[in-house]
């Protein structure tokens, strides 16, 4: 008998009495009066920054005010019309070639108010390493009508909203890479991005 069968047989022999699966009804959970403000506050608390913009021009202006963006030599943008991308992804064959990207601009699908996280998938980002290896990251989360539509209250709603069918990789990103492994001192920029800026773009089609 192979290991799979041995394990499954042992599990079946030892199964506890059946217990029903609870429903996770909506409505029990916290709702924020101002989701955008909550999102912004939490994102700042976890070391990120949030910027609200109303047009592509305004977004590009704000981007150019970021010191990290101005100092960046290699810029990779996966959001059409945002930033001056000089790393053409079509020419990249191997994710290792993205090692020296200084600044990446990536599309985020929506934000989560309770924890400042943004949901990102590799459906729009060819190389998932772009979420981790650049020195700095900006995410662009776009709302069609109202900014509040781009932010959900909590993780329960987030899982109702996200789709995993069309991508093999999905990620909640909340702030920059960080560690407190040396004497509990918080250090921003462990191995991954040293900064995270989230642009909430309120722009009708």
């Amino acid at each position: 008998m192979d290991s799979r069968e041995v394990i499954l047989r042992s599990v079946r022999q030892n199964l506890p009495p059946k217990v029903e699966c609870p429903a996770l009804d909506q409505g029990h959970w916290i709702c924020y009066e101002d989701r955008v403000k909550q999102f912004t506050d939490v994102l700042e608390a976890v070391g990120g920054t949030c910027s609200i913009v109303h047009s592509m021009d305004e977004l590009n202006d704000q981007l150019h005010q970021l010191p990290a963006y101005c100092a960046a030599k290699k810029i990779c943008s996966c959001v059409p019309g945002v930033g001056e991308s000089n790393v053409p992804l079509e020419t990249i064959q191997d994710p290792h070639d993205l090692e020296d990207v200084d600044f990446a601009i990536l599309p985020g699908q929506f934000g989560v108010a309770e924890n400042g996280a943004v949901w990102i998938t590799d459906a729009e980002i060819k190389y998932r390493i772009l979420c981790f290896i650049p020195q700095h990251i900006a995410l662009v989360v776009r709302a069609k009508c109202d900014l509040a539509d781009a932010i959900v209250d909590h993780m329960h709603e987030a899982y109702h909203r996200l789709e995993i069918t069309d991508s093999s990789f999905g990620l909640f990103m909340s702030g920059p890479s960080k560690t407190a492994d040396i004497e509990q001192s918080l250090v921003i920029g462990a191995h991954g991005p040293r900064s995270l800026t989230v642009f909430l773009l309120e722009m009708p089609n």
Binding site: V42, A45, V46, V112, E114, N115, G116, A117, D122, R128, C131, F132, M155, I164, S167, S168, F169, G170, L171, F172, M173, S174, G175, P176, S177, K178, A180, G192
Partner: peptide
Amino acid sequence: ATGQPITSYTSHFHGPRP
């Protein structure tokens, strides 16, 4: 675990990368 609202990265792997 650490008093954070969520970890910085929560990655979902559904199959290998291309």
